[in-house]
Amino acid sequence: MKKLMLSTLLAASLAGPAMAETLTVGVAISQTGALAPFDAPVLEGVHIAVDEINAAGGIGGNTKIELIEKDVRSDAAQTSIAVQELADQNVSVMILPCDADPALAAMGVVSSAQIPAISTCASSPTLPVLGGDYMFANFPGDNVQAAVSAKWAFDQGYRNGYIIYSPDTQYTTMPVYFIEVLTKLGGTMLGQATYTIGQQDFSAIATRIAALDPQPDVIMTSAYEPDFPSLLKALRAAGVESQVIGSDGIDSPTTFSLGAVAEGLVFSTAGHATEGSPLEAFNKKYEARYGKAPETVFNAVGYDLVKVLEAAVLESGSTQPQDLRDAIANLENVQGATSTITYKGTTGMPVRQVSLVRVTEGARELVAQPTPDPSLIPEPRMR
Rank of each mutant, 00 (worst) to 15 (best):
D51M: 08
A117S: 09
V50A: 06
P97F: 08
G45L: 11
M189H: 00
S80C: 05
N138S: 15
R236H: 07
L212G: 02
K184Y: 04
D323W: 03
L324S: 04
P253T: 12
F228E: 11
S355V: 07
E365V: 00
T340L: 11
L35F: 13
G161T: 09
T371R: 11
E180W: 02
L314S: 12
V83T: 13
A281H: 12
R208W: 02
F202H: 01
Y224M: 04
N138I: 09
I95L: 13
P167D: 14
N138F: 10
K151N: 05
V308H: 04
I163F: 00
Y286M: 11
Q200R: 11
P372K: 03
G246N: 05
D133I: 07
A153H: 01
G141S: 15
A56E: 15
A113S: 08
A76M: 08
A137W: 02
I179K: 04
V176N: 10
A147Q: 02
R352Y: 08
E263Y: 03
S247R: 04
A105S: 15
F202V: 02
V72E: 11
P278E: 09
T120C: 09
T173E: 10
N330Q: 15
V83I: 13
A262K: 00
N330R: 12
Q192C: 05
A34Q: 14
P37I: 10
T346L: 12
G259E: 06
F154D: 00
P175M: 08
A105T: 08
K64I: 03
S242T: 06
T338Y: 10
N299L: 09
